[in-house]
Design a protein around this nucleic acid. Sequence first.
DNA 1: ATTTAGACGTA
DNA 2: CGTACGTCTAAATC
Length: 884
Amino acid sequence: MTDSAKPTLLVVDGHSLAYRAFFALPVDNFSTKDGQHTNGIYGFLAMLINLIKAEQPTHLAVAFDTSRQSFRTREYSEYKANRSESPSEFKGQIPLLQDCLAAMSITVLQKEDIEADDILATLATQGAEAGFSVLVCSGDRDTIQLVDDDITLLYPNVQGVSQLKRYDTAAVIERYGVRPEQYPDIAALVGETSDNLPGVPKVGEKTAVKWLGQFGSLDALLENADKVTGVVGANLREHIEDVRRNRTLNRLLRDVELPVGPLDLAVQPMDAQAVRDIFARLEFKTLIPRVAELAGIEQQMAAVTSAAAVPMPVAVEPSPTDLRAWLDAAAGEVGVTITLEGGLPNRIGFATADAAAEASWTPEVSEAISGWLASASPKVFSDAKPQVKALRRAGIRLGGLAFDTSVAGWLLRPSFPDKTLADLVDRYLDEKLPEADPSQLVPETEGATPGQLSWFALRVTAALRAELSPSVATVLSDIELPTLLALADMELAGVSVSHEKLAAFSSDLGERADAFALEAYAAIGREVNLGSPKQLQEVLFDELHLPKTRKTKTGYSTDAAVLADLQETNPHPFLDLLLQHREATKLRQIIESLDSAIQNPASGGDGRVHTTYVQTGSQTGRLSSTDPNLQNIPVRTSESRRIRAAFQVGDGYDTLLTADYSQIEMRIMAHLSEDPGLVEAFISGEDLHRFVGARVFGVQPEEVTSAMRTKVKAMSYGLVYGLSAFGLSKQLRIEQAEAKQLMMEYFARFGAVRDYLRSSVERAKIDGYTETIFGRRRPFPDLASPNRVLRENAERAALNAPIQGSAADIMKIALFRIHDDFASHELRSRVLLQIHDELVVEIAPGEWDAAERIVRDRMGGAAELTVPLDVQIGRGDDWNDAGH
DNA sequence: ATTTAGACGTA
DNA sequence: CGTACGTCTAAATC
């Protein structure tokens, strides 16, 4: 509990935290082009910025040690004598860090013969006396003794500098079992290896706490040392002088003479130019906006309030020719909103910063403004794709798409995308979008008109741009917006699916499912709803008395993996029949939903299935597909591939082409980790799992058995998801020890992979987000969660996000370039489907060679990685034929 | 009528 | 105790 009326003094141990940051971050990723290492500086500053943002101190200082010598080394020459020389890469970072702090107008303190923690102790003591709420941030446990009602310690976690644990008096008692002022007594008894201060042998925290509880104080304990029984008692008596020495040395000085006091440490405005200069020199690109944000909060607030003063314009409704003139006269970007009726434009509205115009969609309006809509004149939309499609249906190809608020909102917060313009107005303008009250037949409140919606979209655009980092802005303009236009065309094109093929298969499956069901009932002597997990639990565990399986929220699991396990340990005919029934009904289900999605030619449809790609549907940058989902059409069993066979080349086209990236995620892993072995695997062109298997098992590639290959394959793929030994053992049905051994062997040969994965998560903890190769970001607040489950889930997701996300970026780039190339080469061939690492293309007569070349070149050349991007192409009359 | 949980399809 | 999705059914809830 902090007293908000009190000023807050934050004092930081610069040396110890920078040193921790140095070990937490990979030195390779943080070097300037002239070879200066900067990982310690970066990590420290990132942490400090976060800290200032979170704690909002009014007063601030950072203390440093001057050298390894201090009054303590003079008192006890062995003090810290075990510390190895700090690595050469670290040297030189401290003076540069101090330069950074100076540019940020943050006071730096150091004093000959005195350690940084003594400076912290002095300032904290003076600050508490002067009425400050004091925060001490240090990586040295001795500072625990400073904690009291006014002084709180922020101590870095073992995981790194990114997470600071808050120690107030209660937290110290909870963690160490003693009051803060008693902690040095514990430390004196236990000793401090890192300071080369041996304590009493066999005495750890538990014993020390017990003793202090018994005797009341360290002095009392030492006086009554003869009363302590056993080996530890003897040890205590033998090392009593060590304990006294330790206690002297770990007492922090609270009365160091300093040139400044707490009141002199008020936070000062930064020297913006100096900050820019030194950060540029250190090549800290991402830190600059974060520091600026810290420094410029007041300005930003002012900007927001003044912007709210502009009144919402009333839209004019000019004649078609006047509307065209209005658009031509508009300077800069124009907000555009098209409302739809039956897939076609209904009303269309436009806005500039202070005016709006709108019209109903008529042939005259269309005629008058189609040229402007197709032109490069910049336009801003909110959720452009359906509107782009409506225009396409009306024969107009939109040009000049400059911004989409929905996509931008998603890029900024992919985990909680603001779904509508109203959400964005709420969040980024802190205003309410006027909405018609849907509960009343005659709404009391007017909704915004298309022109006014456009005006809001334009204003939201300005607010979103202010928050987009340069890299994310580039992802929006260079990847997402071109992709949006390609997706619109893909959705319009749809894919031809044969009702006849589906229908035949479906009735097949129906009969089989019924037969399995009857047999299953016979096996247990009653009917049961096989689709009800609840009823199945009764059958399996109450009636058949099979052993309880994995727990779920509501009972015990009956999923396929569990049933397969049960079949092995407690074979029963019902289990297998249930699995077969499930498989058949699942397939039939998929077929039914697919069939009903075919636009029936009998009622004016085109006999094709038109999915909707949700561009803002994932947290990683992937697309998702709905109504129907065409990204989860079965492929694994030969049986299920009959469904793919129903996806066929459409009338007027020649053949289907499928193109997929082979092992794109592992290639990205090779690129990001620069693991020499993995890179060699891909450059050699040998089968990846065979190559890896040979290394891991120490045999020749041709000696890799299929069992070995299966294992390393599972391991390789698992890596991308943050797999544990436990998970690997379950997946491969091997002992955990063997899984552990496999991981050890794997990392022994491909160590840079592990280094990369570790450091990438560590970096995410410091930055608060992950980044793909192309700069797409995903925030991970839960990386700092004290809840272990939440945190570890976030760690696995953060490990996966840059890899899955980079693959998504690459595919999007390939996709829109192929789409655009087809158009510019005036091919009729068209991309129909995207299934994450695969494209399905419909090839027009005579265009195979040209189209195949474009697909191959664009997919292979979508990114320059240190390993090649391998593309597999297939050809056939249906998707199954064309696949491989 | 809508929501939740379990199951399962894909990359 | 492996990431990212969407959709189906049954059952629970409104």
